[in-house]
């Protein structure tokens, strides 16, 4: 497989700390802000950030949930592979609160669009921000931009970004992989 490292373990750690600090800078004690990890892959990043913010930066009572967007996707019945639903766990309302969506890679923006629809089932947020680990520039299908970015990359459509997490893949690393044509 033809791949190159975008972020190694140490760089990923630095990025995670920076993203946590950026969130702290804007949301302070998170009293009116909630973290929402987007299923399936954004949840790993959200878990890490949640852990950093609550343990390293001592934020108490940080509300955190996971959101599955499967039933809100716009490619239902248009996809060769059937969509597989994941679990949503949000045991609070987002009415009038600041919501921070967390996902690993921002590509077309369609997942974020679905998430913006899906979150409305839990109330009307005051504001919604988007944090992504990797922003694939110049590949958007919709006018969606992240509020916080770990790393921007310029990748062609024959390439994809693979984010490996220790808890699932045995290592922390981000790769740019060239697909077989």
């Amino acid at each position: 497989m033809n791949q190159k490292v975008l972020l190694d373990e140490k760089e990923l750690q630095v990025v995670l700390h920076r993203l946590s600090c950026q969130l702290l800078e804007n949301h302070l004690d998170f009293s009116n802000s909630v973290l929402i990890g987007l299923q399936p892959r954004g949840v790993f990043l959200a878990d890490r950030l949640h852990q950093l913010i609550t343990s390293d930066y001592q934020v108490k009572n940080l509300q955190y949930g996971t959101l599955d967007i499967t039933f809100f996707r716009d490619d239902f019945r248009r996809n060769e592979n059937p969509l597989k639903a994941n679990s949503t766990q949000i045991d609070f309302l987002v009415e009038n609160r600041n919501v921070i969506f967390i996902d690993d890679v921002l590509y077309s923006g369609r997942s974020v669009q679905a998430a913006l629809s899906a979150i409305q089932s839990f109330g009307r947020p005051k504001a919604v921000e988007l944090m992504v680990l990797i922003d694939r520039r110049f590949s958007r299908h919709l006018p969606i931009q992240p509020s916080y970015t770990g790393r921007q990359v310029d990748a062609i459509s024959e390439e994809h970004v693979r984010v490996a997490w220790k808890e699932r893949d045995g290592e922390d690393c981000v790769y740019l992989v060239k697909n077989k044509i």
Binding site: F76, A118, S121
Partner: peptide, 12 residues
């Protein structure tokens, strides 16, 4: 889980 949300509808 969906039908126990405050808004119980999805657009699928």
């Amino acid at each position: 889980e969906v039908i126990n949300r405050p808004i119980k509808k999805v657009p699928s």
